[in-house]
């Protein structure tokens, strides 16, 4: 591996890490607030990608307007799933888990029927330029997700720490009963968490749509690494998940570049098993009683 390829791989790994971080932070936030999470989260990502495809590639909207549309769509889907599935099934971890598994089927078929099966939808890149440093050229489109991820996750952390609503979210995550005694409306908090999760999935799906081939199977491909990131980082811990997404983003990208994608997945699952065998609650998770 020469230095040029090394630099390129590092840049790619950064982009992949940023994408996983945005997806997995949404998952873990929803998990923290509801003690349940969403297997169909990868399909939210896919919905964001299709939104950008429809608005930007088909209807010639400006790229960033299309991404904003993807954020909106993601948030709306998140709200709908919270209202339709998670709220009635609150407290039933197995039920919520299996219901979102069923939701994966629904989303996949819906996208397939609307946008066509087996059609790869290619979204043209709005930024053709490449960033050059130390002789390596990295496409601008690929790394643009990194500042976005930093801004989104940083914003989320600030929101959770210094804003009343964000602190209410954390209170519900710590102890729903005590939080509701303080006058926090739990239904509104779970809705908020799912809307944020959906919006984060939508924005990352929207930005990454130019890099991935957009197919109905995209959601299923993206969900396994995202779930591994959440489990490794610790369920409910935003910081742990960010750390784990950087770790796994680098592992997956480097092994994919050096060997192949199947091996990369195997290695990351093995890392997950190792982490769980030593720390069952994940790297920075709390012990669930």
């Amino acid at each position: 591996m020469n230095s040029q390829l090394l630099l390129q791989t590092i840049a790619n790994a950064g982009a992949v890490s940023a994408m996983y971080a945005m997806i997995a932070v949404g998952l873990t936030l929803a998990f923290g607030v509801m003690q349940m999470a969403n297997l169909a989260h990868g399909h939210f990502f896919m919905a964001g990608a299709y939104t950008v495809y429809a608005l930007y590639a088909l209807h010639d909207w400006p790229f960033w307007f299309a991404v904003a549309g993807a954020v909106g769509i993601g948030a709306v889907i998140g709200l709908a799933v919270e209202r339709g599935i998670f709220r009635p099934l609150r407290g039933d971890v197995v039920g919520g888990f299996i219901a979102t598994a069923g939701l994966m089927f629904v989303f996949e078929v819906f996208m397939g029927e609307v946008w066509g099966w087996g059609h790869m939808r290619q979204v043209p890149s709005p930024y053709m330029r490449a960033v050059k440093f130390f002789g390596a050229s990295v496409s601008f489109q690929r790394v643009i997700v990194i500042p976005f991820a930093i801004a989104c996750i940083g914003g989320l952390l600030v929101f959770m720490r210094w804003f009343r609503l964000g602190r209410a979210l954390r209170a519900v995550a710590q102890d729903p009963e005590a939080a509701s005694l303080q006058g926090i409306n739990i239904n509104r908090m779970t809705a908020l968490a799912m809307a944020i999760a959906g919006a984060l999935a939508g924005i990352s799906g929207g930005i990454m749509s130019t890099i991935y081939a957009v197919t109905p199977a995209l959601g299923g491909h993206i969900i396994l690494p995202a779930l591994i990131v959440v489990v490794v980082g610790g369920m409910g811990s935003v910081g742990g998940v960010t750390l784990a997404s950087i770790l796994l983003g680098f592992i997956i990208t480097f092994v994919t570049t050096l060997v192949d994608g199947v091996t990369a997945m195997m290695v990351s699952v093995a890392v997950m098993a190792l982490v769980l065998a030593i720390r069952p609650q994940g790297l920075m998770g709390h012990v669930v009683t």
């Binding site: 998990f31 999470a37 971890v93 888990f97 779930l227 489990v231 769980l276 069952p280 669930v288």
Partner: peptide, 14 residues
């Protein structure tokens, strides 16, 4: 020793 939701996901991964 892994509980709840993490257990389901980890079984899927393995």
């Amino acid at each position: 020793r892994t509980k709840g939701w993490g257990f389901y996901i980890a079984t899927y991964g393995l």
